[in-house]
């Protein structure tokens, strides 16, 4: 599903003395099967922005299109049910939303609400458990006796059980250990590659931006500074500095070497990209390839 924002603005408590503008004049497009990362400091509007995608918050001005659905300030909630089925939202610390007695019932809750029979929903739940890397023995256990990382997988399985076409992830790896983070990011990438899910990822992890995203949107004080490929965004050290965003470690390291006179064809963003280019410059190695 493609997503388009056209001049979207959002003000909390609009029309009251408490009105607080949170987004202004946001325009960008994510193609079908795209992978967009959204970065920016705490309070820059990232979470407000993603809540527009399934109209948990409706724009105060402008228009959002998600495939055939259009969201404007006038859109009523009655029109939104089909949209919400297609846009899966994984909020920060989604495990805090688990509530059922068993893991299977928790995952089956959403699909059953949207019209599947109990039997179908239970079967779907078992399939989703497998997708997130937990075996069937978990089905009858309580979600509350799992580790934090396992609880998060169950919560994500509950979102996937709706079979969304767009997956919106708000810092999905926050608080996990490095192994848990790696497994989680691999899972999302697999869903993106194998099932063609469009992914919107809010993150502070620049390594993940470099490794997975096609494009990256940079938010600052409710405005979209830029939306371009990670290569284009991280490539300009002066702009990166003035916009106060972090760069992937590999890029930072490459820029240090650049100061010493090592020239890059293209700024490397990952350790592998960096090594690829270093080999070209390596005495007695680059020449052999030519």
């Amino acid at each position: 599903m493609a997503i388009t924002f056209e001049h979207v603005g959002y003000t909390y408590q609009a029309g009251t003395p408490m009105a607080t503008p949170a987004l202004s004049d946001i325009s960008f497009t994510v193609p079908d099967h795209g992978y967009l990362a959204i970065i920016g400091h705490t309070g820059s509007g990232k979470s407000t922005l993603i809540q527009q995608i399934n109209a948990l918050l409706k724009p105060t001005t402008g228009k959002i299109t998600v495939d055939d659905f259009t969201i404007t300030p006038q859109t009523t909630n009655a029109d939104l049910k089909p949209l919400r089925r297609h846009v899966g939202m994984v909020f920060q610390f989604p495990e805090s939303q688990l509530f059922e007695e068993t893991i299977q019932r928790d995952i089956a809750f959403g699909p059953q609400n949207f019209g599947l029979s109990e039997e179908e929903a239970n079967q779907r739940a078992l399939d989703m458990l497998k997708t997130v890397g937990l075996d069937e023995s978990f089905a009858d256990r309580s979600p509350f006796e799992l580790s934090g990382g396992q609880m998060r997988r169950v919560a994500i399985a509950g979102v996937l059980a709706m079979q969304p076409k767009v997956l919106v992830l708000d810092e999905p790896t926050a608080g996990l250990d490095p192994q848990g983070r790696q497994e989680m990011m691999t899972l999302f990438n697999r869903l993106h590659q194998e099932q063609g899910l469009t992914i919107i990822l809010v993150t502070h992890q620049m390594e993940d931006v470099a490794a997975y995203a096609d494009e990256v949107a940079v938010m600052q004080a409710g405005k979209l500074l830029t939306c371009a490929t990670p290569q284009e965004v991280f490539n300009d050290p002066a702009w990166v500095q003035s916009s106060d965003i972090a760069v992937p470690r590999a890029a930072k390291f490459a820029q240090q070497l650049d100061k010493r006179g090592v020239k890059w064809d293209q700024l490397p963003l990952t350790a592998d990209q960096l090594a690829d280019q270093l080999v070209q410059h390596w005495p007695g190695m680059g020449a052999q390839h030519e």
């Binding site: 250990d177 192994q179 790696q182 350790a271 592998d272 090594a275 080999v279």
Partner: peptide
Amino acid sequence: RLIHLGLDVPFTAKLKQALQDRGI
């Protein structure tokens, strides 16, 4: 192995591994 110890692999170790994989 650091991943199994609950830590991340430092960037310099990742880069070294990548260089080694390329015969350096």
